[in-house]
Design a protein around this nucleic acid. Structure first.
Length: 433
RNA sequence: GUGGGUGUAGCUCAGUGGUAGAGCCCCGGAUUGUGACUCCGGUGGUCGUGGGUUCAAGUCCCAUCAUCCACCCCA
């Protein structure tokens, strides 16, 4: 049997390996988010990535593209239909209800993890992708909407993204108002069937609000003249929206009202928003969310107002990379590279490395392994991005010392007693930082 | 699901139907205990996969897979 008969196994289409060269960027971003959640009083919840299929069908909407053709659905061994989660909100609501987190109390939750949708991959869109989301339950006023948006705004500020993203806002109104508007809109479109393209005709029955979002220039004029959602809001939703915009203005957050902004998932009502960028090609939405006051009840719980958002980690990392906003020092590496000068010094080098790690827990020490000539060892020290190499040879061992060599500065190397090495390194590194 | 582009060394890519290439990376040496700059040498390919045309295919044709971009949809 030749090797050619063995079929090459590779990653599933649209599902990416995150390589060691990438992971520091992710860690940089995730650390910022984690810290922010703490500061705003949101608590992390972790749910399984597999749920009963019915959960998503009931929450996202039976006739949405996600449920109709994008879910990874399969039968468990007991013939129960399971689905890899395509988004995070449904699982979050299920878990919160299941454990009584919504019983006579409010909750501010966040989550993070992989989501799965069977779509054609392209820039910023993958079959396994990652989201970070927050969900606040039990608050019906615009204050929590503002809080949720302000949290996202602060994240962009801290990452240096603020000038590169735009906040788009809209209100869908109560579910009743939304239903009434839907009828008005369908009636309008039916008068202009000759202008509607194929996709839009299909959506006329499934999701007419989405037609407003179409990029087809041939329909632009007709869409501009279409009845506006804003003119069909119920009084309560209008007041809610006005208060929200006033709060955002007071907080100094710029926004644009986009009357055509309609979220794709059925459960949204009232406030909806998106943060978009023009720097990522056609996948410009970097964070999106809104209110879903009816969802908890729809899934069998007591009526509970709720608001949240989800952001796409891949898209945000892509954006940070494009704009070169990830600081060099966040990109990993080590502080010191400790190398035995030949094989006879290996054992002594191991104990010295362990000693340093005990003395300075925050110090990143890479020990040279794998032998090689002295020259190749010191080359590897250079490649490690460490600022210093610690050399240990025959002379050092007899003197119980170590040689500290500066790899990045033009500076004489120095011999340091092993007992003083930890202290010396601490001083050198803090002086550098 | 639709349309277009691209698949040649680990990476970035040349390659006119006639013996498989470069740069970078990696390894060794020039220097017995000092990296980066320089010089010398070396490892590494069923040219995405499977068919077809041809005396001869990396090159032409067909299919297929992967990838990228856009539509659709969405984070």
């Amino acid at each position: 049997m030749s090797k050619s008969a063995v079929k090459k196994i590779q990653a599933i289409r649209g599902m990416n390996d995150l390589l060691p060269s990438d992971s520091p960027r992710w860690q940089f971003f995730e650390a910022k988010v984690r810290q922010l959640m703490l500061r705003y009083g949101f608590n992390e919840i972790r749910t399984p990535i597999v749920e009963q299929t019915a959960l998503f069908a009931r929450s996202i909407g039976e006739v949405t593209d996600i449920v109709e053709k994008e879910m990874y659905t399969f039968d468990d061994r007991n013939s129960e239909s399971l689905t890899l989660r395509p988004e995070g909100t449904a699982s979050c609501v299920r878990a919160a209800m299941e454990h009584g987190l919504l019983y006579n109390q409010t909750q501010r939750l966040w989550y993070q993890g992989p989501m799965f949708r069977y779509e054609r991959p392209q820039k910023g869109r993958y079959r396994q992708f990652h989201q970070i989301g927050i969900e606040a339950f039990g608050f019906d006023g615009p204050d929590i909407d503002a809080e949720v948006i302000l949290l996202s705004a602060r994240l962009w500020q801290e990452l240096g993204l603020m000038e590169h993203v735009t906040l788009e806002l809209n209100s869908l109104g109560s579910s009743e108002a939304r239903a009434a508007y839907r009828d008005t809109l369908v009636a309008y479109f039916e008068q202009h069937l000759d202008v509607l393209d194929e996709d839009s005709k299909r959506r006329l029955t499934s999701n007419p609000l989405r037609i407003l979002d179409s990029k087809n220039p041939a329909m632009a004029e007709m869409l501009d003249a279409a009845p506006q959602l804003m003119d069909h809001l119920d009084t309560e939703s209008r007041e809610h929206f006005e208060q929200l915009t006033a709060m955002l203005e007071a907080a100094g957050i710029a926004y644009v009202i986009n009357p055509r902004l309609v979220r794709g998932l059925d459960y949204y009502c009232r406030t909806v928003f998106e943060w978009t960028t023009t720097a990522l090609g056609s996948q410009g939405t970097v964070c999106a969310g809104g209110r879903y006051d009816g969802l908890v009840e729809q899934l069998g719980g007591k009526p509970t107002p709720a608001v949240g958002f989800a952001m796409g980690i891949e898209r945000l990392i892509l954006l940070l990379e494009t704009l070169e906003l990830i600081p060099e020092d966040a990109l990993g590496g080590c502080d010191v590279y400790l190398l035995p000068m030949d094989d006879s010094a290996t054992t002594a080098a191991i104990s010295l490395a362990e000693r340093l790690r005990s003395e300075l827990p925050e110090l990143r020490v890479q020990l040279h392994c794998g032998g090689g000539s002295f020259k190749s060892r010191i080359k590897k020290a250079d490649k490690s991005h460490a600022s210093m190499a610690i050399l240990l040879g025959e002379d050092e061992i007899t003197q119980q010392s170590a040689t500290v060599k500066f790899l990045r500065d033009d500076r004489e190397q120095q011999s340091v007693p092993q007992t003083a090495l930890g202290r010396t390194l601490r001083e050198l590194l803090t002086a550098n930082a």
